[in-house]
Computed example of a mutant assay.
Amino acid sequence: MRPARALIDLAALRHNYRLARTRHGASALAVVKANAYGHGAVRCARALAGEADGFAVAFLDEALELRAAGITAPILLLEGVFDALELADAVRHELWVVVHHEAQLRMIETTPLAMPLHIWLKVNSGMNRAGFVGADVAAAWQRLQASGKVREITLMTHFARADEPQVVSTAEQLECFEAATQGLAGTRSLANSAAILGWPRAHRDWARPGILLYGADPMPGEANGLQPVMTLESAVMAVREIEAGDALGYGGRFVAERRTRVGLVAMGYADGYPRSVPDGTPVAIDGQPGRLIGRASMDMLTVDLTDLPAAGIGSRVELWGRQVPVNRVATAAGTIAYELLCNVKRVRFSYQD
């Protein structure tokens, strides 16, 4: 069996959820959109079902998958619904629904509903991607109340730069949100992962932890005690030696400066490992620090075994996990941990609890 696998530590997932809830000090929706950031939405939701206050997904199909798997806790649709049929499904499955633009608001006003909804009314406080602005917030809140189809309203916003604690825009967004929602009844939800960890002023009634659940710390320094949930690993499948001056792999990017012992690893960009990482990107080989050499290809990549004489065929290679933080690989690839985790595919998934 090909040794490439993603090992998912569900105990670490629960640890991270508890940390988020403790730091925030109030209720928290576990964000499991995008197949739980590549970790498996159903398995992660089931692992959290005994303690999570609810879940958040991007859209209806993701919510229905959880309901079909027996998840009965509240589920929030972060994108809201796209038409009246989806709105009816949201009511049928007792989903909470974000409303962030005029067409969605009008849809609620004009569609007969079997029961009232819990609506999350989104405020555009400065990200300028989705949500109502300024006086439009109060007008939307009043229309929802007047519709007779809403049992509760939660007022929410989303931060653009909460992971940059030195930048003033998060404080400005907080002020904008407070001004737009002043005097409006309803619970509040502001804090994403970075705000949970770094912006106590943003802690309100509901938190929405996402990336932190999976152990990738969104804040500089990575000192918040999160535990990595996914370990992406494989094994050395062949070994060869190349001489000084020999080029290795596609494009000949790596040229050996000395006689080099090369380990061929069953992992590539078709599995989700980023092709863009440079020579020297960290790996762990049988628990020892190692480095990638040569360009990652579709199914294989190569590592330097020269200074690890005991390593050989069958040696375990961690691409990211407890020894190699996914953030370090993401930085080397010029991207973010979210993208790497969401892109993992084709490998076997193994769950431990």
Rank of each mutant, 00 (worst) to 15 (best):
A4F: 10
L7T: 13
I8Y: 07
N16S: 10
Y17V: 04
A20L: 04
S27T: 14
S27F: 02
V31Q: 02
K33E: 03
K33R: 06
Y37E: 09
G38F: 00
V42T: 09
G50H: 10
I75P: 10
G80F: 01
H100A: 10
E102T: 10
Q104Y: 04
T111M: 06
P112I: 03
N124W: 09
L144W: 05
G148T: 03
E152M: 05
T154G: 15
M156K: 09
E164V: 14
E172Q: 15
T181H: 03
G183H: 11
N192D: 14
N192P: 07
A194E: 06
H203T: 07
W206M: 06
W206V: 04
A207K: 04
G210A: 14
L212K: 01
N224F: 10
Q227K: 13
T231A: 09
T231P: 06
S234K: 00
S234N: 06
V236C: 10
A247T: 15
G252W: 01
R253F: 10
T260Y: 02
V262P: 05
M267E: 05
G268E: 11
Y273K: 12
Y273W: 13
P278G: 09
A284V: 02
I285V: 14
D286E: 14
P289K: 00
D307Q: 12
A311Q: 00
I313G: 12
L319M: 09
W320I: 04
T331C: 05
V344C: 08
F349L: 14
